[in-house]
Simulated assay, not measured.
Amino acid sequence: MERKKDENNEMAVIPEHHSPVRHILNEANGQPNNQFIDSFKKALDTPDAYVIMEGDYGGQIYLSCPMKLVNCSEETLHTLLKDLDTIAWGCNEGEGRGIYFEKHFPGDGIGGGMGGGDVEEGLWIHNEFIDLQLYDEIHEVISGNKERLTK
């Protein structure tokens, strides 16, 4: 796929706060990339903001959750991402994991591998973590009642 060049004939760079997979999908489908929010703080103050965690370079969406339900610190979210990534893609040794803040509405889909993800009014997690019976524990971390996963 040929990347667009800017006015200086340089290759466009995907901003760090964009999921590369969703950024490229938007470009390929002629959609704007205006759903991305560039910081945890801005996401806390943005209506309809969600935190989205992914692994394997967007090959698996781990979770989505409205920011209005996030009562933990940004550091705790990053620890949760590291724990989920170790469970799902430990072979990647931390490469390819990402946490993104995006504007969405319940019913939206989240582009990504392994079925992508869903946007719900509450916490959504990938079936792999449901099968491991981690929903309640993940919810406790996001709610600020736990520092990290213990299972």
Results as ranks from 00 to 15, higher is better:
112 G>C: 03
131 D>W: 10
47 P>L: 01
19 S>L: 07
102 E>K: 05
133 Q>V: 09
146 K>Y: 09
21 V>P: 01
151 K>V: 01
44 L>K: 15
50 Y>M: 09
118 D>R: 13
37 I>L: 12
8 N>A: 01
103 K>E: 07
98 G>K: 07
121 E>L: 06
69 L>I: 00
1 M>L: 12
45 D>K: 15
95 E>S: 15
66 P>V: 00
76 T>N: 08
112 G>L: 06
81 L>G: 07
36 F>Y: 14
80 L>Q: 04
24 I>E: 11
135 Y>P: 03
107 G>I: 06
137 E>N: 03
88 A>R: 03
77 L>A: 09
53 M>Q: 10
40 F>E: 03
41 K>F: 03
17 H>R: 09
103 K>T: 14
32 P>L: 13
149 L>S: 04
114 M>E: 07
38 D>G: 13
10 E>G: 00
59 G>M: 08
55 G>T: 12
123 L>H: 01
150 T>Q: 12
151 K>I: 03
114 M>W: 03
10 E>W: 07
56 D>I: 14
30 G>T: 09
147 E>M: 08
28 A>Y: 10
130 I>M: 09
33 N>T: 15
22 R>N: 04
57 Y>H: 15
70 V>I: 11
58 G>D: 00
45 D>W: 01
89 W>F: 10
148 R>D: 06
31 Q>G: 07
147 E>Y: 05
43 A>H: 03
68 K>Q: 11
92 N>D: 14
129 F>M: 03
117 G>F: 06
37 I>V: 13
93 E>Y: 13
135 Y>R: 11
135 Y>M: 04
118 D>F: 13
98 G>F: 05
74 E>P: 08
127 N>W: 09
98 G>Q: 05
5 K>W: 00
9 N>E: 11
31 Q>F: 14
139 H>P: 01
26 N>S: 15
132 L>Y: 06
57 Y>I: 13
1 M>G: 14
43 A>F: 07
66 P>G: 01
118 D>W: 06
24 I>M: 09
28 A>K: 15
58 G>V: 07
115 G>K: 02
47 P>G: 07
139 H>Y: 13
148 R>P: 04
104 H>M: 14
31 Q>M: 14
107 G>P: 00
141 V>E: 00
57 Y>T: 13
29 N>F: 13
127 N>H: 10
53 M>W: 05
109 G>R: 08
69 L>N: 08
51 V>L: 10
116 G>P: 04
116 G>C: 08
89 W>C: 10
58 G>I: 07
131 D>Q: 08
136 D>I: 04
123 L>W: 08
119 V>F: 01
66 P>T: 00
78 H>W: 15
140 E>H: 05
110 I>C: 00
28 A>S: 10
144 G>E: 02
58 G>N: 04
44 L>Q: 14
94 G>R: 09
146 K>I: 04
27 E>Q: 13
42 K>N: 09
49 A>M: 02
145 N>S: 12
27 E>D: 14
44 L>D: 07
144 G>K: 06
73 S>R: 10
88 A>M: 10
28 A>G: 12
42 K>S: 09
144 G>T: 05
95 E>H: 14
27 E>F: 06
123 L>P: 01
83 D>T: 10
117 G>W: 08
69 L>A: 03
142 I>S: 02
116 G>M: 02
52 I>C: 13
40 F>S: 06
93 E>T: 04
118 D>P: 01
74 E>C: 05
51 V>K: 11
120 E>W: 12
69 L>E: 11
106 P>S: 02
50 Y>T: 01
104 H>G: 08
33 N>V: 12
122 G>M: 09
